[in-house]
């Protein structure tokens, strides 16, 4: 049973890290309506930033800053934030499809840079960062994973609380106002482009946080970690969980990552030996079918957005789907 527990802790750690990224995306898409197709770039900036800033000097590479861990993690988030700020300035006036493709392009260019720039990020062989923090004190067995999980969980909860407060604040109302009707918001003297940029950067910093934790957990990051698959995974989590709803975002992360891993596990366990070689393809078909099925069955997500109207007298809560 300890094996099961150990695996569940490990699984939940990865899922929680992904959930943080989904929360970041939810701020951008769910609350502000920004179609960020380059999630993985900001996640990757956080991971690379953290490992390079906190890592020891490596031959033929910039870095070796060996910052203390919290500084490295904050630095990774800052890298993601600065990148988001530049990308945002360039692209945020684009709408939906155009924005999605432009940011997707940013992510492809980011992966490309990491893959080729050996002096910056180790090239295709990736960056070996630093030993996981506190490893000396508590070893690297089950206990470590448990402690790490608790830390990630606390960060997830903190992010969740922060975003819930943010969304309920006047700024959150402003975000939704701009999402629903930009011109109306503008006529009230608000600056949509600045507000959108703020939301975009904040969401990206949160993705960078997730990336930083991810890099810390594996003590390694390579271009293979920043392929577009991750963007797709994070989006699928948000859409299935329910865009606009932070609880939905977290739930979606656990559900999709669960489906992703359980399908592989179940196939390896129950598929006949002769079919084992084909399970990779079958698993992708299953994953595709789950996502398509969810969207056919419940396109608004499992936990849809609760639209709160602040005026008294109107219908206060849209209970649809609750």
């Amino acid at each position: 049973m300890i094996g099961v527990l150990s695996y569940l802790v490990f699984f939940a750690t990865t899922a929680s890290i992904l959930a943080i990224a989904v929360l970041g995306l939810n701020l951008q898409w769910g609350n502000t309506g920004l179609f960020n197709g380059g999630v993985v770039a900001f996640f990757g900036a956080g991971a690379y930033g953290t490992l390079i800033l906190g890592g020891p000097p490596q031959e033929g590479m910039v870095g070796g800053f060996a910052l203390t861990y919290p500084m490295a993690l904050l630095g990774g988030m800052a890298v993601a934030g600065v990148m988001a700020w530049i990308v945002g300035l360039l692209t945020l006036r684009l709408r939906h499809d155009y924005l999605a493709i432009a940011t997707f392009g940013v992510a492809v260019a980011f992966e490309n840079l990491m893959r080729n720039a050996e002096w910056l990020a180790g090239g295709a062989k990736g960056v070996r960062g630093f030993e996981r923090p506190f490893r000396e004190a508590i070893g690297d067995g089950f206990l470590y994973n448990l402690v790490f999980f608790v830390a990630v969980l606390l960060i997830l909860i903190a992010t969740y609380v922060f975003l819930e407060r943010l969304v309920a604040s006047p700024f959150g109302r402003l975000l939704r106002a701009i999402r629903e009707d930009e011109e109306a918001a503008q006529s009230l003297g608000k600056s949509p482009s600045r507000v959108r940029l703020t939301a975009f950067v904040t969401g990206s910093v949160i993705m960078g946080l997730a990336g930083g934790l991810y890099g810390t957990f594996y003590a390694f990051v390579s271009p293979q970690d920043v392929l577009p698959t991750l963007t797709f995974q994070v989006w699928a989590m948000l859409i299935v969980g329910g865009a606009g709803n932070n609880r939905g975002a977290v739930f979606g992360a656990f559900l999709i990552w669960g489906a992703w891993t359980i399908s592989g596990w179940a196939l390896s366990r129950f598929a006949p030996v002769e079919a084992q070689l084909y399970t990779g393809s079958v698993q992708f078909i299953l994953i595709g079918a789950v996502i398509v099925g969810m969207l056919v069955w419940r396109p608004q997500g499992l936990l849809p957005e609760r639209l709160i109207v602040s005026q008294q007298g109107s219908n206060p809560v849209n209970k649809r789907g609750e």
Partner: peptide, 25 residues
């Protein structure tokens, strides 16, 4: 031999490896 696909995705590969070690022993 319990075979798991990595999908060439580090997350997926690591999770599969962890499942093999913890669940299949």
């Amino acid at each position: 031999m319990v075979l798991r696909d990595t999908q060439v995705d580090p997350k997926v590969g690591v999770d599969a490896a962890k499942a093999l070690v913890d669940l299949e022993g």
